[in-house]
Amino acid sequence: MSRDLILQAVISGLLMGLIYALVAVGLTLIFGLMEIVNFAHGEFLMLAMFTAFWFWALGGLDPMLSLPLVAILLAVAGILAHFGIIRRLLKAPMLAQVCGTFGLGVALRAGAQFLWTPDFRTITNPFIAGRVQIGPIFIGQPQLISGGICLLSFAALWWFVTRTETGLGLQATAQDRQAAAVIGIPTERMFALGWAIGLGCVGIAGTMLSTFYYIFPEVGTNFALLAFVAVALGGFGSIAGSLLAGILIGLVESLGGLLLDPSYKTLIVFALYLAVVIFRPHGLFGRF
């Protein structure tokens, strides 16, 4: 096995990992705020990919142009989900919370299958296509750009959460809901904001993914599984943790696929989850 091949795997794993991270950060944000695991997360990613696809197929809008539109639409969907569904589920026992979001996911996935058939679709001629060569390494341009956009999104999210007053309010709500309410932070609005940002990130990740990945109703399932792993690895509620964990998963997956058998690459990642939740239940990067 040549050095180049490994380097190639590292780069592509890194770029894919950035997407995983951006999907995971939405999940972690929502969990950090209201301790609810969004089991419909993968389905929202699927919806984002289809939204980008239909903008391209029907409106002729390239994913790079529809990116802000999809992000905003998904954010609105997040707000609607919060006020329409989640707010009620918050008062319910955990079983109902898990089953409720799960049910939402099932309905969305089946709905997509009903409306758009289970066919695989692709966006055929995006603005950004082809690949660049750096020495012996080939990198797909869509992957490169989407990696960059994911990093930018993370930077923006980091700035927002740590440097703005609203972001601090978000953090305060995550730390202690009641204390935050006492000092006048509108926690209900913070929850909705968390959903908006979380699904907005999914919107960005989905749009970028749609430029180089197949689009089909079941597409979200595997990404959601990997996002769960990333969130557990990074520690539930940690933004930086999910970035690192996403990248780690991308690397483990591509290197595992290279060194072992490609069909077992997901198994390695799942084993990683089990190892982490059993031996380090607060995540690799979370504080004890």
């Binding site: 319910a92 109902a96 409720g100 309905a107």
Partner: peptide
């Protein structure tokens, strides 16, 4: 499955 999902969501809510 659409009906299942909606039903279960309603029950949970």
């Amino acid at each position: 499955l659409i009906l299942y999902g909606i039903l279960i969501l309603l029950v949970c809510m």
